[in-house]
Amino acid sequence: MTQKKAFKINIYEIIGGNAAVSSDDGQIIFDRINKAFKEDYFVSLDFKNVDLIVSTFLNACIGQLYGFYSPEFIREHLKVESLSEDDLVILSKVIERAKQYFANKKNFEDSANKAIYGS
């Protein structure tokens, strides 16, 4: 049986500090997750020593994934570590919101395509 490939992303090290507050930093993490997912890696996001996390960062880093991967794939391939209870609440809202956002976006784009190209 093949061993599952796994990689841990140390958020503190990548963003260079304890504040996960910018969309740009979130995008850097997203790019790394995306690259790993394409290789079918399992990714663990380690937030150890990060003491300020805002929704803008989480939207870019994790919420954006739902535009590219199914919830089932993400559930199977991604996990988070060292997040406080409060940050887990925000992350759960970010995820819920991302699912709605991409569902609405798809409906919107389908309607737009229908309007432009016909059914």
Binding site: G63, Q100, Y101, F102, K105
Partner: peptide, 16 residues
């Protein structure tokens, strides 16, 4: 209102 955002790209919003 929660969920309302003017963002249209690949990054969701509407939560802050």
């Amino acid at each position: 209102e929660e969920g309302n955002t003017t963002r249209t790209g690949t990054i969701p919003g509407g939560l802050g």
